[in-house]
Computed example of a mutant assay.
Amino acid sequence: MTDDSLLARALVEEATKKSGLVWVRSDGPARALWHVWHEGAAYVVGGGPGEQPLPSGLADGAVAEVTVRSKDKGGRVVAWTAVVSEPAPGSEEWRAAVDELKGKRLNAPDAQTMPERWARECRVLRLTPREAVTDLPTGSLAAVPLPTPATTRDPVPAALPKLLRRRRAR
Rank of each mutant, 00 (worst) to 15 (best):
11 L>Y: 04
141 L>S: 11
35 H>I: 15
71 K>I: 05
33 L>G: 01
112 Q>E: 14
70 S>K: 02
55 P>C: 02
170 R>F: 02
113 T>R: 13
31 R>Y: 08
162 K>Q: 07
156 V>I: 14
12 V>L: 06
114 M>R: 14
118 W>Y: 01
38 H>T: 02
112 Q>R: 10
113 T>P: 00
38 H>L: 02
81 T>M: 08
143 A>R: 13
99 D>H: 13
86 E>D: 10
78 V>I: 11
72 D>C: 00
14 E>F: 07
53 P>Q: 04
100 E>I: 01
145 P>F: 11
43 Y>F: 15
103 G>H: 04
119 A>R: 06
65 E>A: 10
101 L>S: 10
168 R>D: 08
58 L>F: 04
86 E>I: 15
73 K>E: 15
69 R>W: 12
51 E>I: 04
135 D>G: 10
3 D>Y: 00
127 L>Q: 03
11 L>P: 06
89 P>H: 12
22 V>N: 00
167 R>G: 01
148 T>E: 00
17 K>E: 03
70 S>F: 04
160 L>H: 04
165 R>A: 15
135 D>L: 14
104 K>Q: 07
21 L>T: 14
166 R>L: 08
141 L>R: 14
145 P>H: 08
108 A>K: 06
143 A>M: 11
17 K>C: 04
34 W>C: 12
37 W>C: 05
54 L>P: 00
164 L>Q: 12
50 G>L: 06
89 P>T: 15
163 L>T: 01
151 T>K: 09
16 T>S: 09
100 E>N: 03
21 L>A: 12
1 M>R: 12
85 S>A: 08
9 R>H: 10
42 A>H: 10
141 L>Q: 13
105 R>T: 13
11 L>I: 04
30 A>K: 15
97 A>Y: 08
36 V>W: 07
22 V>D: 00
63 V>S: 11
98 V>M: 13
9 R>D: 11
24 V>A: 05
136 L>M: 06
27 D>S: 09
40 G>M: 10
80 W>I: 09
146 L>W: 03
92 E>A: 15
75 G>N: 11
114 M>Y: 14
92 E>G: 11
35 H>A: 14
44 V>Y: 05
141 L>T: 14
165 R>K: 13
20 G>A: 05
110 D>K: 09
73 K>T: 15
165 R>C: 01
41 A>S: 05
44 V>H: 03
104 K>G: 05
139 G>N: 12
27 D>R: 06
50 G>Q: 00
159 A>W: 12
163 L>D: 05
112 Q>S: 12
129 P>C: 07
110 D>N: 09
140 S>E: 02
85 S>C: 03
154 D>A: 15
17 K>P: 06
59 A>K: 08
